[in-house]
Design a protein around this nucleic acid. Structure first.
Lengths: 256, 256
DNA sequence: TTTCATGTACTGTTATGACAGAAACACAAT
DNA sequence: ATTGTGTTTCTGTCATAACAGTACATGAAA
């Protein structure tokens, strides 16, 4: 018996790296490892039931997206962005989403415009509800998820699949994760998103562009201000604290 | 002698995957494998003197950037973009480069503005020279390289490193490769780039944005028109032609 | 108590090889 | 001539293990 067919159980759908990528990204976005925490390829591979090869591929993608950062013979950690990094990412977000706004104004259907208008109204109501119950954390999560949804829907209606994918992988999710993690969000003007959608729905592309730009810039300032409060908490050196990493035994929720 | 220290010759600088990525990308951009040609991880690994692991990592990056495309148990080929793909990419290019133009108008130094003005003048002169000698292919390469340089320099002066990297990896190089490959380039108005730089150098961000937008759109139309002529030459099916691939013995220029 | 050497345990990297599946080819049957 | 059927040879995927280098704990020497 030279070598029985290995434990590889026909795997399943569509590749182990994809599964690893989704799972790890999900866990990062929900803040299950803290900012700057060390993560290990081997440990993740163990917990996900695969070897370190697919995990490494997932790490590479996450690293390219700027969510993690790794040094050759040292380790990998959840990236803790500097203020310059954040401004940088918002520059990109402004570029991509203002373009999406232009395209939305140009070619979104009537049904889509109505759908977005309703989403925005519902989202604004959710914000108000959240201010009324500041301690309800599940509400915070829900608001955030709906907020992401709104922006992604706008980009989907732009008709450009590539633009949509870029926005997803480079902006929205990343900063909503940070938004959540960074602490309490500052208040937002009433009708904040309804006004945005109204401007986007005009036939004037330049106006749609400008409205989305100021929307994104408002979010930038809010994020920077929230960030400043917690920036001191996170040590920025490359001490990985492996002791702590070894002690951490809570496994990742593999789910699905 | 259980296992002597392997043939891994201490490698060299900064990672095998990076070297593989650079080399393969260079070869794609210069059209050394044709559009739609099959490329093999194993063969490339052999030619580059490494195993298929770093090559696979490079493949993943190239695949994410849309330069190649691979099917699980079939093979990998140089991607042949559809017209929709091209329009899609130009939408993104428009978003990113118009943002770069805004930032250039806002914060570029006087020295940088002067430098760009000179680059543009030199580039416009090169275009004229090219029209005079249509059969000089090295001149075509040079024009193209200077064109890329100009656009990258604009993005560098934007002060946003992330924007600059995104432009490089997602737009400029890709489409200049295609531009080169697709055949003869249509004529370009005189002072095409000098006019662009002049508009970009104004203090009016919206004007800079608009100028870059129309510049990019002009390039889009030119590319589409050139593309139509050769689209029929390339078969779009997934026949990889392994026979031909095996026959091709010319090795990749490894260089550096 | 402080400082420095040393060992250990971990890190990311990467070569090797086994595996499953698809395509191409040779060849017999129709 | 055409069609069906192995068989061979390629593909990408992935597990395993060896390698080289860093962080940290341990303990001896000052």
């Amino acid at each position: 018996m030279p070598r029985r067919t290995k434990g590889r159980p026909k795997s399943s759908m569509q590749g182990l790296p994809e599964k690893a990528y989704r799972t790890i990204r999900e866990n990062i976005l929900q803040g299950r490892f803290g900012l700057g925490a060390a993560i290990s390829r081997r440990q993740l591979a163990l917990e996900l039931g695969m070897s370190i090869i697919p995990v490494s591929e997932a790490f590479q993608r996450l690293s390219q997206e700027g969510l993690i950062e790794s040094k050759p013979q040292v380790g990998t950690r959840i990236r803790v962005p500097t203020e310059a990094n954040i401004r940088d990412r918002f520059v990109i977000r402004e570029a991509l989403e203002s373009q999406a706004a232009r395209l939305f104004a140009e070619r979104a259907s009537m049904a889509e415009r109505r759908e977005l208008r309703e989403m925005a109204a519902s989202l604004d109501a959710l914000y108000l509800e959240r201010y009324a119950n500041p301690e309800d954390s599940s509400l915070v999560l829900h608001v955030n998820s709906q907020h992401v949804r709104l922006h992604m829907r706008i980009s989907e209606c732009s008709g450009s699949a590539g633009l949509c994918r870029l926005i997803e992988s480079n902006d929205v999710l990343f900063y909503n994760w940070l938004f959540d993690l960074v602490g309490e969000q500052p208040p937002v003007p009433p009708h904040f998103h309804s006004d945005l959608i109204a401007a986007i729905s005009s036939t004037d592309q330049a106006a749609a562009d400008a409205a989305m730009r100021s929307h994104v810039r408002y979010n930038l300032e809010a994020t920077i201000q929230s960030m400043r409060k917690v920036s001191a908490q996170v040590e920025s050196s490359w001490r990985l604290g492996r002791k702590a990493s070894a002690k951490r035994a809570k496994s990742v929720s593999v789910s699905r």
